[in-house]
């Protein structure tokens, strides 16, 4: 019975006519939520228990989600972690990163992620806390397309790997064989050192090597080095700007003159790479008039006064060294 009915409606103690004699009018049926006796209490508990359990379930779920999502909560010390990478970094590296730092193993998810991403080899780190308190770490690593010989401020020369975006890194987890198979970038100008090393012309040679590694791996694996001596960096359309690739000769047949180099123009390297599989180099090198000691494949005519270069592959004798 509503407020207005109670105070302004018909008075229940007065006989209002035959319609009032209907049992519904006589008994308003206002029931208690919980019956008074034992059985009633049991029934009330049984009927409300599902609701209470539902609420508890949601609360527990909320707590689990909060703990999983909140990156500021410290990771439980000594807990194991699940690790996955698309590259070469070993689990020991991750373990070392987790344990390192002032906080040690008590650091939180956000700090672990930041520490992992300070290494140039790591492109992105996804660090999550699982419901059982363990960590789940998924790394995306930078792809190494080349290597450079770097001189640190002190100590001997070291080999560092180069990613297509120009980041250099130590190559933790890479096998010696893999490192050896990468072409070396030579004759480059650089600024900075270590992880901060910036290679001039990487914006051209990086995508070039990535495209070669992805789509023309057969040729890419034969390349020993790429010289940036004639690469003018950002001015890649400049006439005469080229990428001078040195081809490994050790694996080439000895019954013909070796191909020692391939010269790509920086302005036209995509078309030239596409052209490369269609050139019958082996056939040309075995022609009777191929009498030079070694040959270089020039893929375009590069005129220092005319731009752009004109694609016209040709084998020219390699200059004597």
């Amino acid at each position: 019975m509503g407020f207005f009915d109670r105070f302004l409606g018909k008075r229940r103690d007065a006989f209002m006519g035959p319609a009032d004699r209907d049992w519904r009018s006589l008994v308003p049926q206002e029931v208690n939520r919980v019956p008074e006796d034992d059985i009633g209490r049991k029934r009330a508990v049984r009927s409300r228990l599902p609701l209470v359990l539902s609420i508890l379930f949601f609360v527990a779920l909320g707590v689990v989600i909060y703990l999983s999502v909140d990156e500021s909560v410290p990771v439980a010390a000594g807990r194991s972690f699940r690790y996955k990478t698309d590259g070469f970094l070993p689990a020991a590296f991750v373990q070392k990163v987790i344990s390192a730092g002032v906080e040690g193993p008590a650091k939180n998810v956000r700090a672990i992620k930041a520490d992992l991403e300070t290494d140039n080899q790591v492109l992105a780190a996804d660090v999550r806390r699982r419901a059982d308190g363990t960590l789940e770490i998924v790394l995306r690593e930078r792809v190494a397309v080349a290597k450079i010989a770097s001189a640190p401020p002190t100590g001997p020369m070291v080999v560092r790997l180069v990613s297509p975006d120009g980041q250099t890194f130590a190559g933790t987890g890479y096998s010696e064989q893999t490192i050896r198979s990468l072409p070396e970038i030579q004759d480059f100008r650089s600024t900075g050192s270590g992880d901060q090393l910036a290679i001039e012309g990487i914006e051209v040679v990086g995508p070039f090597l990535l495209a070669a590694r992805t789509s023309y791996e057969r040729f890419y694996l034969q390349w020993a080095s790429v010289s940036l001596r004639d690469c003018f960096g950002a001015q890649e359309d400049a006439p005469g700007s080229n990428l001078n690739v040195t081809v490994r000769t050790a694996a080439q047949p000895t019954d013909r003159p070796p191909l020692v180099g391939i010269i790509f123009s920086t302005a036209n390297w995509r078309k030239e790479l596409a052209l490369l599989p269609r050139i019958k180099i082996e056939e040309y090198l075995r022609m009777p008039n191929a009498t030079a000691q070694a040959y270089v494949l020039k893929l375009s005519i590069q005129n220092r006064t005319i731009s752009p270069p004109v694609p016209e592959p040709r084998l020219v004798p390699a200059p004597l060294r």
């Binding site: 049992w23 008994v27 049926q29 029931v31 939520r33 019956p35 009633g40």
Partner: peptide, 21 residues
């Protein structure tokens, strides 16, 4: 029809179990 007291008793008994008729 039913005697009013008897009806109230039956409805009241059921209402006492938190159930409406």
């Amino acid at each position: 029809t039913m005697e009013e007291g008897n009806m109230r008793m039956r409805v009241g008994m059921v209402n006492g179990m938190s159930i409406k008729v």
